[in-house]
Amino acid sequence: MTIWDWSYVWEALPYLSLGAIVTVEATLFGFAIASILGLVFALIRQSRNRYVSTAMAEVVEFIRSTPLLLQVFFIYFVGPEFGMFIPAWIAGVGMLGVHYAAYCSECYRAGIETVDGGQWEACTALNLSPQRSWRAIILPQAIPPIAPALGNYFVGMFKDTPILAAIAIPEMLQRAKNFGGENYRYIEAITMVGFFYLVFSLVASAIVQAVSFWLNRRYHLQ
């Protein structure tokens, strides 16, 4: 028996690439949710109302302190017991997004807090509305510096997508396992999947770096 058989590679390729599409889609949708919802969390956290901001902090803490897999199970398996029937794809990608939103919100918070307090004072002195202050003054200074950290979560989320397999979403790693099981031959499929994860992560890191460089240049934050 050969260690590496190319015929298995060609046979697995179309099957695995379907899974790769699912994985990439889940990452992109999930991250879209995480980055937007994370910002919303962070802004609610900044609320002047102490109860609102504390409640938000607790929710974020709660999400970060329980495993993603458990949260996915809760939505997908426990939900129906309360009449909440959510398709696997929406439950999986949604929960991935919400889970990472909690992490991203901490990131945004760090960025917001590094903006000099004098900027807020200038906004008040110029009579800008709070909405305009956030949008035009504070966030353009808060986000570029944290772009690399957000990018890390992007890559991290990509590597967490195999969790979707637990609720029967045929993502890439799951397909590799199935392929291996059907053919009593795992090495090619698992290696191919590993290789794909590696390539995607490297490409994603490069994109993140380029984006954060561009953002910092765009907003002249040196």
Binding site: D116, G118, Q119, E121, A122, A125, L126, N127, L128, S129, R132, A136, I137, P140, Q141, Y219, H220, L221
Partner: peptide, 29 residues
């Protein structure tokens, strides 16, 4: 709105040009 202030540490908006700094509030407020 009748009061303007100049600060010790300037507090200019670093991501805007001098012109944009002076245009932001007249446009949006």
């Amino acid at each position: 709105g009748q009061i303007g202030m100049v600060f010790q540490h300037f507090n200019l908006f670093p991501h805007m040009t001098a012109l944009q700094n002076c245009m932001e509030a007249p446009v949006s407020v």
